[in-house]
Amino acid sequence: MNRILSLYMPALLLFMLMIGCKKDNFEKPAALLSGRVVYDKEAVGLRSNGVQLELWQSGFELFSKIRVYVAQDGAYSASLFDGDYKLVRLRGNGPWVDNTDTIDVKVQGNTVVDVPVQPYFLVRNNTIEKSGTTEVKATFSIQRIADGRALESVSLFVGRTNIVDAVNNQGSAVVSAGNIPDLTAPVTITMNIPAGLAGQAAFYARVSVRTAGVAEQIYSQPVKIE
């Protein structure tokens, strides 16, 4: 008797565990909503995990937003269930003109939706390179897209990995708007390579534009400097 028990009990328990699990597990979301935050069909460069979009779905008891963070290259993605969602660009959150028009999104399988925004400024034609052995030099032009806000400053950030922004960096240089007499002319920023990067084979750099009164900045794509 004891032998039978000791033999069959573990098997029985295992079996119960297996069927027990099935019962109350939910399906995981299968659909993927992805896309980019774009201006003029071009993705805008942002701070890594700095900007969020919000997704809402009504008709369920729990009414709470789904935060969707945008990557630094402007891409976003969210695993969802099939259904109708409302995508909202949160006011004052991104470096662009507030636009609270809701975007209706029908998610069915893998869905791609680009989110159009209108930045105040964009970085154009940027080149970032070493100048001599101890300096980094960035040259770029600023394009005004929307009126209504003044330029606050432009910055150059350098960092060890290709995630470089105002928060993740090894060093930065800022030129405030007062020192940029002509917004249409190309702007140059130079900075010394910080000690932490001096010995590195390669590092990454980005330039950004800060609009007065807007927390987040618009960035160029990161450039690898060897």
Binding site: A166, V167, N168, N169, Q170, G171, S172, P194, A215
Partner: peptide, 10 residues
């Protein structure tokens, strides 16, 4: 607060 604690490591 947003100027003093601006999240910049430098």
């Amino acid at each position: 607060a947003d100027k003093v604690w601006n999240g910049n490591v430098s």
